[in-house]
Each structure stands twice: as C-alpha cells, then as structure tokens.
Computed example of a mutant assay.
Amino acid sequence: MLRPDKADLRGVPVPRFLQLLAVLRFYATGSFQVISIEFAGKLPEVVKIPQSNEELATARNIFYRVSHFPGVVGCVDCTHIPITSPGGELAEVVVGPRLEILDIVCRWPGSTHDARIFHNSRLRLHFDRDEVSGLLLGDSGYPPLRYLYTPVRNPATPAERRLV
C-alpha cells in the first residue's frame, strides 16, 4: 500500500508517492491532460499566496536564511508548457522558499511576454492593493516595481555590484 512518508518530502516539491501515482496514471491513459485536470481541481487547496502575518514572516525568514536578502516572500518566473489550460479562465507561477507554488497563471499563449502575464495576474493585484507585504524577485523580463525586484542592468555602486 502506498502511503505518504515524511521522508518523501525532503527537498522534493512533489512527494515520491504522488510522482509514482502520476506516472501510473499516464501509463494507464497515455495522457497528462487527465492528471492536469485533476491537479487543477486541487489548486485552491494547495496553491495559496501567504497573507497572514505569520505566513509572510515565515517566508521572509526562510528566504533570508537562504540568500541573506531581506523581505522576500516569493520568486516569480514564467514557464511555458504546451497543454490545454486545465483551469480555464480561472487559472493563474510564484514559488515560495520551500519550492511550493504560491500562484499560477494558465491562460496565456506561449508567445506572451512574462511582464504581460504578471501585469494581468491576480498576484499583482494583491501586491498593488498591499494585501501581501513583502518583496518578489524576478528576472529582467519583469518591470521593477516597489515590490518586484529585478536585476540591476548596469551596476554602478558597490551595493549594486554586490547583487550581481
């Protein structure tokens, strides 16, 4: 009998027993779409933006221990995967310090720029409304915002060069 094991959770975003079940489902159906649809049904349970002071403080502390970068609650990036959106129009990737998914967007074609996807996301709305306190880190595909830090293109000061 397969059961979740705490040892399965060390450094692995998806526990091994769930990986095995996903592979077995793929072998049985020949399609990841069924898995994606079932995963999408669980999104509200597992994909959550930290909003309580305790959740945000935990995320900031873990990111600080890893990178010594204060105030960070998530890292944002786009990964284009060629599937039919299992979440339809309601689907919205930001990753937390334990590699958990905090937000996901699934409604744009692969040619859409990262900045446009973020600009139209629910996540940006939460940060714009100050419903989430903290910083996001993004790559140079995103605009620098008061809560979204991106790489400094031409570092001039010692502090800027230290970030490169």
Rank of each mutant, 00 (worst) to 15 (best):
A7L: 14
A7N: 14
A7V: 12
A7T: 12
D8C: 13
D8N: 12
D8Y: 10
L9Y: 14
R10W: 12
G11V: 06
G11Y: 07
G11E: 05
V12S: 14
V12K: 13
P13F: 13
P13S: 12
P13Q: 11
P13I: 12
P15T: 07
P15Y: 02
P15D: 06
R16Y: 12
R16F: 13
R16D: 10
R16Q: 14
F17I: 06
F17P: 04
L18H: 07
L18S: 08
Q19N: 08
Q19P: 07
Q19H: 03
Q19D: 05
Q19R: 11
Q19E: 08
L20K: 13
L20C: 12
L21W: 05
A22V: 09
A22T: 10
V23I: 14
L24E: 12
F26H: 01
F26L: 07
F26A: 04
Y27R: 15
Y27F: 15
A28E: 14
A28C: 14
A28G: 11
A28W: 11
T29E: 08
G30E: 08
G30C: 10
G30N: 06
G30V: 10
F32N: 11
Q33T: 04
V34K: 09
V34I: 13
V34A: 14
V34Y: 07
I35H: 06
I35M: 05
I35E: 06
I35V: 12
I35W: 06
I35Q: 07
S36F: 07
S36K: 00
S36V: 00
I37T: 07
I37G: 02
I37Y: 04
E38P: 01
F39H: 13
F39W: 15
F39S: 15
A40Q: 05
A40F: 05
A40V: 05
G41N: 09
G41I: 04
G41R: 06
G41E: 06
L43G: 10
P44N: 02
P44Q: 03
E45D: 13
E45F: 09
V46I: 11
V46Q: 03
V46T: 06
V47D: 01
K48Q: 03
K48D: 02
K48G: 03
K48S: 02
K48W: 00
I49E: 02
I49K: 02
I49D: 04
P50F: 00
P50D: 03
P50I: 00
P50Q: 01
S52C: 08
S52F: 06
N53I: 12
N53C: 12
E54I: 04
E55H: 00
A57K: 11
A57V: 10
A57S: 13
T58Y: 05
T58F: 09
A59Q: 05
A59L: 03
A59S: 06
R60Q: 08
R60L: 02
N61R: 13
I62T: 08
I62V: 11
Y64H: 07
Y64T: 04
Y64P: 04
Y64K: 00
R65T: 15
R65Q: 15
V66F: 09
V66Y: 10
S67M: 15
S67Y: 15
S67F: 15
H68V: 11
H68Y: 12
H68L: 14
F69L: 03
P70S: 01
P70M: 02
P70Y: 00
P70N: 00
P70W: 01
G71C: 00
G71K: 00
G71D: 03
V72Q: 04
V72Y: 01
V72H: 03
V72K: 02
